[in-house]
Amino acid sequence: MIQVENVHKSFGDAHVLKGITTQFEQGKTNLVIGQSGSGKTVFLKCLLGLFEPEQGTITYNGQVYSELTINQRRDLRQEMGMVFQGSALFDSMTVEGNVMFPLEMFTKQTKAEMKDRVDFVLERVNLVDAHQKFPSEISGGMKKRVAIARAIVMNPKYLFCDEPNSGLDPKTAILIDNLIQEITKEYNITTVINTHDMNSVMEIGEKIIFLKNGFKEWEGTNKEIFKTDNEAVTNFVYSSELFKKVRQMYIEERN
């Protein structure tokens, strides 16, 4: 579980995060949504420890990040997996090299043991024939799967995804969403996903927090988000014609 308490983060005069308090539960897919510039990425980077909040605390299963030593922080980071928006695969390494990298850096496993683990996670993300390909030789969807495989190869306790299905076609996006949710359940991981994709919200949003101008505007589930009367949330959710029609149908049904 990750508990976030009154987190503030600024860059110069720009106050990006303004007192965010929430918690992300284990075994659930937690979504952070909001418009571009709402502070989602900064919030995720604070959760990852890449940015240090000026005020507030972030607690990982009882460990307050700001109170940890450098070595403890490094150990904690080894319990985190991250899927970046652009996948962030090491382009000079093969798919296998990318997934094996954390094992080579942090474990004392033999080459054969590492190979077995890499084969297992690549199979888990449905990538069996791409071991020796370079990132430039595979599609966007495959890159995301490699990034997920790399993120879970160390059996992380926390999985963070920054817009994991941006730039993907709707079918592949749903496959990636479902894969993340399956892995979250299977390994009982605390998963936090940054997204502004409403399909993801509907499909896997077990807990959703909505950010607006650096504030937490709303918090709930994917069932509740379509019933809320919060104007900022409804403006965001029903910005597309399709969802406007869905809402109209819901209102008519209710009346």
Binding site: L50, R74, D75, R77, M82, A88, F90, D91, P102
Partner: peptide, 18 residues
């Protein structure tokens, strides 16, 4: 620089690599 702009350096940091 390319590693920086493609977030590969962030990926290293998140993994706990200096």
């Amino acid at each position: 620089g390319t590693m920086k702009v493609t977030e590969q350096i962030d990926a290293l940091e998140v993994m706990g690599v200096n």
